[in-house]
């Protein structure tokens, strides 16, 4: 999984190098959409083949939902604290 990170870093480097080449940037953007479609399609495939996952999709969905609720509530609370401590005073001075 090391390669995942390396690929991205190389991407940033090349992206920066080609930042003036609008046609290449447009092409890269289109290509990344196609790649995402392809990856999600193959993820769908491998899940569809796995009958166990399909049959349990509502249980998995519930678990997924609980995790996202936890993540969202945690983010909201901590960001709110950051807001109260570091950002609010500046606004009330107005």
């Amino acid at each position: 999984m090391f390669y995942v990170i390396i690929s991205m870093i190389i991407g940033v480097f090349f992206g920066f190098l080609f930042r003036e080449k609008l046609r290449i940037i447009k092409f890269a953007d289109k290509l990344s959409n196609i790649v995402i479609f392809f990856l999600l399609f193959t993820l769908g495939l491998s899940i569809g083949v796995n009958k166990k996952i399909v049959e349990n999709i509502s249980t998995l969905g519930l678990k997924a939902f609980l995790i996202s609720i936890g993540a969202v509530i945690g983010s909201l609370i901590l960001t709110f604290l950051v807001y109260l401590v570091f950002f609010r005073d500046k606004n009330s001075d107005k």
């Binding site: 995942v4 690929s7 991205m8 991407g11 090349f14 992206g15 080609f18 790649v35 193959t42 993820l43």
Partner: peptide
């Protein structure tokens, strides 16, 4: 999907670097 994932990561990085 593994090589394609690397390609995606490259493109995600490319998007950030060129933005």
């Amino acid at each position: 999907s593994m090589p394609v994932l690397y390609l995606l990561m490259f493109l995600v990085g490319f998007g950030v670097g060129s933005n």
